[in-house]
Simulated scan of single mutants.
Amino acid sequence: MDANQRSRANPFGMDEACTNCPELCEPRTQVVHGYGDVAADFLFVGERPSAEADEMGIPFATEDGRDGLYRMLERLGLSKTDSDPASPEVVNVYLTTLTRCRDPERPPTDEEIDTCEPYLNAEIRMVNPEILIPVGERALEAIATEYTTRPASDFEIEAAHATTIRGRGFELVPMLEPEEQTDEQTQAWLEHFVDLMASDYRQTKGRQGR
């Protein structure tokens, strides 16, 4: 699977007509695969596409493109403030979700998350980030199960928010869903991540320097 960095949207050319989860095919607008820098150090994983992502095809999209996670990325210098919300210019960041399709009436089932897992695993393998950022409880559970030696039941998103968890090959920096954060929680996460970015966070994993 080759990367096409000329496009931030679905740069690995994953199946945009996927029908692996039949009950998600009818309600979805489109399949929303990962978006961003294929050589990113920071990989964000949410639970499922937002309503706006389902319309625009961009993970974590919001109505005006200046709220939520993208606003936090702008404050970190990881997204350009004047970029088009339909094609945000993220820097050193890759964005994806556990499931690629949205049912507006319900969250994904465990079976649907399991069915989509090969897409996520392929993105993590190809991007080979340094830091994984699970966004929300469901993403933390999935990422912790796969990439730490501790049971997922050890982690609770409220307590893990704005902390660093040592994983197997990656560090995890969990985040509450942006729309659920208080201003204080947002500031705490940003300050923690700024400190991490200023540290020697890169591990020896055979990746080339940026």
Rank of each mutant, 00 (worst) to 15 (best):
M1N: 04
N4Y: 02
N10R: 06
G13C: 05
G13A: 04
E16F: 14
E16W: 14
E16A: 14
T19G: 12
P22N: 04
E23T: 12
C25M: 10
C25V: 15
P27I: 04
R28G: 04
T29Y: 14
V31E: 05
H33L: 05
D37K: 00
A40N: 09
D41A: 12
F42T: 02
F42N: 11
L43G: 02
L43N: 02
G46L: 08
E47C: 08
S50R: 06
S50M: 08
A53Y: 12
D54R: 07
A61H: 02
A61T: 03
T62M: 09
E63S: 14
E63M: 13
D67S: 14
G68T: 03
G68H: 09
L69V: 07
R71N: 12
R71T: 00
M72D: 02
M72N: 03
L73Q: 06
L76V: 11
L78N: 00
S79F: 03
S83F: 01
P85I: 05
P88G: 02
N92E: 14
Y94E: 05
T96P: 10
T97F: 03
R102T: 11
R102N: 14
R102S: 11
D103I: 01
P104R: 01
E105P: 00
P107K: 10
P107T: 15
D110F: 01
E111P: 01
E111H: 10
E112V: 14
E112M: 04
I113A: 09
T115S: 07
C116V: 06
E117L: 15
L120T: 11
A122D: 07
R125Q: 15
R125D: 13
V127A: 11
P129N: 10
I131F: 05
L132I: 04
I133W: 01
I133Q: 09
I133V: 15
I133F: 02
P134K: 10
V135W: 04
V135R: 10
R138Y: 05
L140F: 05
L140R: 13
E141P: 03
T145P: 00
Y147F: 15
T148V: 04
T149G: 14
A152V: 05
A152G: 12
S153K: 13
D154C: 12
D154H: 07
E156H: 12
E156G: 09
E156S: 10
I157A: 02
A159E: 15
A160T: 00
H161R: 11
R168A: 09
E171H: 15
L176V: 07
L176T: 04
E177W: 06
E180C: 13
T182G: 09
Q185L: 08
Q187V: 14
A188Y: 00
A188M: 10
A188T: 09
E191S: 13
F193G: 06
L196D: 01
D200E: 08
R202A: 06
R202M: 02
R202Q: 06
K205S: 11
R210G: 08
